[in-house]
Design a protein around this nucleic acid. Structure first.
Lengths: 232, 232
DNA sequence: CGGAGTGTTGATAGGAGTCAATATATGTGG
DNA sequence: CCACATATATTGACTCCTATCAACACTCCG
């Protein structure tokens, strides 16, 4: 009996490639950790000492310029993998946006384990390829879309990615209503905008009847068609 | 004796993970292909039918919006891998910028081969992780940098990536002078700018004595320090 | 030589950034 | 539980950077 047996992401994370014995071995080199919102698991430029699986919660990956401009370069959800295996440094910071639980490994231990378990490396490769696809799609948004298109695209992606899996009765359809795990500043940092511009676009979408904002963090998509049209 | 024996990237591409026998097997499922500048190897949204190794030349990966805006999401050089293994569609087009030679595989054949050769998958994982790192760094540029900073960053990266490997007497230092494999429009598509803004930034950097432009495609870095400062 | 493609330069406009004030949450201690 | 303090978000006025529109120059080939 290990912590993995009751793990929420047991069948979706890269661990799903392992049998019971292997899982037990992996469990031995890992440990659980809880993060509070705002708490960081690793920092940009730091030696790559840790890797982890996300069990619960949402975390951001971010880099910045020396003069303090920040850019969120990725957002990770339960079952996603974080950290830089087989590499020296981490390239971006990892910070919890919500309360979060992760399964942490020393990078060296993980690297060694992975090299001995090709099925695990295969899962990791699949995940990395999918993440690269997603990241490249995001580049189109950053490089070529207007503020309005950026926010609309972002809200659509949120409605798809924030789906809580495991609810059998509720199929994995995009959500109509959800709680943003981001502050306005963080939305701005994802989209490459300022907080003021983000705020103005939120109020415009609301005024146009495309979304509703019951509270600062709550979003209701009233007109998904319209939102998709706004996304360009 | 196979084509691989004389391959320029034999020791740098993912093939370097294979022994002579395995390489022969891989060679059997692949074929060489030459591309002329502007010629595409795959298209955005298309079924993922091919993957390839770049032997010679430079190619761009690009996506666009429906209304014709384009964004270059990656640039690949000799020894780089292209295509989307283990996936249904390709997400971005691949087009040669220079005369190019590639080693092409049917994706299905390659997938099957890779799954039987963990060392190859490991190399591919390493490459994909490195590419993801690079792509995320590029997001900072797209989201947060000014036109001047973008062009300066771009020229610095070019000077590092265009190094021709294999010249033993010339170590892999950043180049002082090089021929851009991009038109002004393509530079704009990499940086998320318009052609006019790119042109203006080129002339400004030249006027400031930081670079020289012997011809449209040639760039000389006169003041690397200064260029780095401009890159922000 | 001439014409098409590519790049540069100029004038103008518009979208997002900046600075500033106000409003709304969020939290704390009395 | 309320008053006040702090953080977060919205709104407004204005500026500036980059896009847009347009004219002109260069270069490469037939």
């Amino acid at each position: 009996m290990t912590a993995c047996d009751t793990c929420l992401v047991r069948n979706r994370a890269i661990c799903s490639s392992l049998d019971t014995e292997e899982l037990k071995a992996l469990n031995n080199i890992g440990r659980r950790r809880t993060l509070t919102p705002g708490e960081s698991l690793m920092w940009e430029g730091e030696d790559s000492v840790l890797v982890a699986n996300v069990i619960e919660g949402v975390l951001k990956l971010s880099t910045g310029t020396e003069d303090g401009r920040e850019q969120i370069v990725g957002v990770v959800y339960p079952s996603d993998f974080i950290g830089r295996p087989f590499g020296a440094t981490s390239g971006h910071g990892v910070t919890a946006l919500t309360e979060a639980r992760v399964c942490v490994f020393s990078r060296k231990d993980f690297d060694a384990f992975a090299r001995e378990h090709p099925a695990l490396e295969h899962k990791l490769l699949q995940r990395t390829l999918a993440e690269l696809d997603r990241t490249r799609r995001w580049m189109l948004l950053l490089g070529r879309k207007s503020a309005g298109e950026k926010l609309a695209s972002f809200l659509l992606e949120m409605s798809e990615r924030l789906v809580q899996p495991g609810c059998i009765d509720a199929p994995d359809l995009p959500l109509r209503q959800f709680a943003l795990p981001f502050s306005r500043q963080q939305v701005a940092d994802v989209l490459g905008l300022t907080i003021e511009t983000v705020s103005r676009q939120f109020t415009r979408l609301k005024a146009d009847g495309i979304i509703d904002l019951p509270s600062r963090r709550e979003v209701v998509i009233l007109d998904r068609e319209g939102l998709a049209a706004e996304a360009g």
